[in-house]
Computed example of a mutant assay.
Amino acid sequence: MSSKMQTLMFLLVLTISSFTVKASPSDAGIAIYWGQNLGDGSLSSTCNTGNYKIVLLAFLNVFGAGRTPIWNFAGHCGDWSPCTKLEPEINYCQQKGIKVLLSLGGAIGPYSLSSPNDAKVVGDYLYTNFLSGQFGPLGSVTLDGIDFDIEGGSNLYWDDLARHLNNIRQQNRYFYLSAAPQCFMPDYYLDKAIKTGLFDYVFVQFYNNPPCQYNIATSDATLLLQSWNAWTSLVLPNNTVFLGLPASPNAAPSGGYIPPVDLLTKVLPFIKHTPNYGGVMLWDRFNDVGNNYSNQIKVYLIKSALQFVTQVSEAIAASVSTALNALLPN
């Protein structure tokens, strides 16, 4: 076998292996925000449902500009009292294969970044206390990443924070970065950060945003699907996009709730064809408990096996064609 043919065969094996590992019809799932109501139940019980692939601890809502960091876990832990009781629960969730991220921001602050150097200080703090395995406010945990749910304060330097966290994960261990922008574009707070392409997950909030959310009064998904297409075209292919929804009508006073039957018939059949579709993000665990939303939709989120095979086949065919053009004489 010639060296060129050996190289070609090697490329083919790498290509097929890559798609087998990275693309799976079971990859799509549900991300849930936890921590804003005692009715959430424990973190362990949340993970025991088997409904979620990502749990976002909400929120670290005071930080930056020299502020002493404070979280608001709505009674699960006091404001910045040690919350080491969560350490075994976080470990339990991770042992079940569920990613646990700390979410920054939320609707109530104050939080902001005052300079690129302040972004570096905050990034170092997050890594040391939540991502490194050293003993910190949650115990000796190694969270799976950091979520940016920035809805207030200044819109400056969030891209600097994303870049600095990315530098840290490249030098140490890889952890995930996610962002939760509003569905109208551009998102005032996170546009520059999202355009860095550094976020593994983008949880777009298609609720409390009438210009780009589902209209329950008319059962019309037009504005939502237009916004979905815009978002999935904006972000890089390796940035997985989730459809952010309220888990009950009460979770979004300004609308955006989609009844499960409408989600399954009027939305999912269209968005699941998007290459960087990742599933559904729900706000929040408390509302999901009360409305049983995730149980009603979870089995419908994955791409069909036929669609998955078609996408993988097309990708492999494109890679083979590229390899052949590069290796074979003209």
Rank of each mutant, 00 (worst) to 15 (best):
L102W: 05
Q6M: 10
T68L: 12
F175Q: 07
S294G: 07
P260F: 09
Y214S: 04
F19W: 11
I150K: 09
K266L: 12
I90R: 07
I216E: 15
N325P: 02
E151N: 01
K99M: 10
Q170F: 01
K96V: 04
G255Q: 10
F130C: 08
K120F: 05
G105R: 04
N51I: 05
P269A: 05
F184K: 12
G35K: 06
G256D: 02
S233L: 10
S81V: 13
D284I: 00
G41Q: 04
S178D: 00
G152I: 02
K22W: 14
F135L: 13
K298N: 11
P329C: 09
F73T: 04
R173W: 09
L131P: 00
V235R: 07
L86T: 10
G106V: 01
Y127T: 08
N276W: 09
S233V: 05
P275D: 10
K192F: 02
K96I: 08
I98P: 07
G39N: 12
A305L: 14
Q171D: 13
S321H: 11
S321T: 15
N229M: 10
Y214K: 05
E89A: 14
A323S: 15
I54N: 01
R285A: 07
W158I: 03
D262E: 10
D40M: 04
Q226K: 13
G290T: 05
V141P: 08
T49C: 02
Y188W: 09
V202I: 15
F286P: 00
A58R: 00
V21W: 11
N239Q: 15
Y188P: 00
L243I: 09
K195C: 04
S81A: 14
T265M: 08
N172V: 11
L161D: 00
A317P: 00
D187A: 02
L263W: 03
S132G: 01
P246V: 06
S103P: 04
I54L: 12
T84H: 12
C47P: 08
N239W: 01
T142R: 14
W158D: 04
A180T: 09
A58W: 04
V13L: 14
Y188L: 11
N129K: 08
D27W: 08
Y214N: 01
G153M: 06
M281C: 03
L234V: 08
A217L: 14
G66D: 09
S319A: 15
I150S: 03
L102K: 10
T222S: 15
K192Y: 07
K96R: 15
R173V: 11
L143H: 07
Y189W: 15
D27M: 08
T142Q: 15
I216H: 06
L143R: 06
I70P: 00
C83R: 11
Q6A: 11
Y176K: 12
V62P: 01
K53T: 09
H273D: 14
V100D: 07
